[in-house]
Simulated assay, not measured.
Amino acid sequence: MSMVSVVVPCRNEAEHIGNVLDSILRSGYPDELLEVLVVDGLSDDGTREIVREYTVSHANVRMIDNPARYTAHGMNVGIRAAKGEIIIRVDSHAIYPPDYIATLVCYSQRLLADNVGPCLETVPGDSSRTAVAISRVLSNRFGVGNSAFRLASSQADYAEADTVPFGCFRREVFERIGFFDEDLIRNQDNEFNERILAAGGSIYLIPSLKVRYFARKTYRDLWLMLFQYGYYGPMVDRKLKRRSQLRRYVPAAFIAALAVPLLAIPLEPWVAIVSVATISAHSSLNLGVSLAQTTREGDLRLAPYLFWGFVVAHLSYGVGYWFGLWNEKVRKGKGGLRISERLSR
């Protein structure tokens, strides 16, 4: 069996970090072949104290400081400190099944893959209707496009993918591809996976392996998260020197169809009909999807929360993309927005 290093980048995760570490340590993987590196971004909510208790009771758990606080920096700190032949990235807002580590290691070696990962079972951050609606938005095709790992629709043993969450990598991948890009507050996983594919590497999704992922609890946090994903999209394109997956441009096209005709009204008033048609089409489709989803679940009271969740998701990602494009094309990457660096948890 291979030595495995599990890297857990986190900051202010006192609510979740204990459950995350418990689920990792209950994996059944031999303790002598497993190290857990919690890379903490200088938490001040009690996270560090919780992790210290685990370092005392479990010799294979270590805490490492991440002064930069952000995920890409934390991953790179953890990778450099890791001893394992296999490195698994773990998110601090998820619960992992008992066979998680063994399954990823098995498929990584069986497929000689550069990255393998699970599907997400997105669950509400709390019991409120807002939180429930957000979790549905992030697991519905209307909300996330054809993102395979969020939809988990394949019945195959494994499937090729363009990206997977919480990757499992062989160490030599980082020697060949490099580390996570620290310019990216968001999208660092997507950018790294795009580099793997551009270098002729392989990424596989394991549909039967499901991780319970806790979604954001409020529309504000959903907006901030997706705004940032959109904002860093153009930077990823510049760094990779090519376009990404089509689904990542659809919200930006939606915003353009809304905004451009409105800006052109002083010249040609009739073009306002394009914006009206766009709003009408989106609202009709949104209403249909929201009612269909809530009817299946037997709770029509959730419909307006879900409707608004889709609106927030599409607007935030699209607006974020255009702000990011302005920063890349006009300010040549030297501008930036304070909101683009704000943590959303």
Rank of each mutant, 00 (worst) to 15 (best):
D126R: 11
S202W: 00
D114C: 10
T122W: 04
F180M: 14
I206E: 00
Q188I: 01
C119T: 15
A148R: 13
G233L: 10
D114V: 04
R212N: 10
Y229V: 06
D99K: 09
A148M: 15
V132W: 10
A156H: 11
K241H: 08
S139D: 04
R176C: 12
F192N: 01
P124E: 05
F214V: 03
L209H: 00
I196Q: 03
S128V: 12
K241R: 13
K241A: 14
L184Q: 02
D189Y: 03
G200T: 03
P234R: 01
R171I: 12
A133V: 10
R129A: 03
G230R: 02
L112W: 01
R186M: 13
L111T: 13
N187W: 01
D237Y: 02
R195G: 06
A152Y: 03
G201A: 09
M235P: 00
Y232H: 07
R110Q: 14
N187P: 00
D189P: 00
R136S: 03
Y213R: 08
V137T: 06
S202F: 01
V132T: 15
K239E: 07
A215M: 04
I101R: 13
T218W: 11
R238F: 05
N193E: 15
V116H: 01
R176L: 00
Y231V: 04
R170K: 12
V123E: 05
S127H: 13
P124Y: 12
A133Y: 13
G117V: 10
F142G: 09
Y232W: 10
G201L: 09
P124T: 08
D126E: 06
I203W: 02
A152E: 09
N146A: 12
S202V: 09
P118N: 04
E160D: 11
D157L: 13
F142C: 04
L138M: 12
L209N: 02
S154E: 11
D221Q: 12
N140Y: 06
F179T: 09
E121Q: 15
V211H: 02
A102G: 11
S108I: 14
V137D: 05
G178R: 11
V144K: 06
Q155G: 14
Q228N: 13
A131R: 05
K217C: 06
P98V: 12
V173T: 15
V173H: 11
Y231A: 12
T218V: 06
A159T: 11
R176Q: 12
R141D: 02
N115V: 14
L104A: 07
V164R: 02
S147D: 14
F149Y: 15
I185G: 07
F142K: 08
E172F: 04
Y232G: 04
D99R: 07
R220V: 06
L197V: 07
Q109E: 15
D181K: 03
A198E: 09
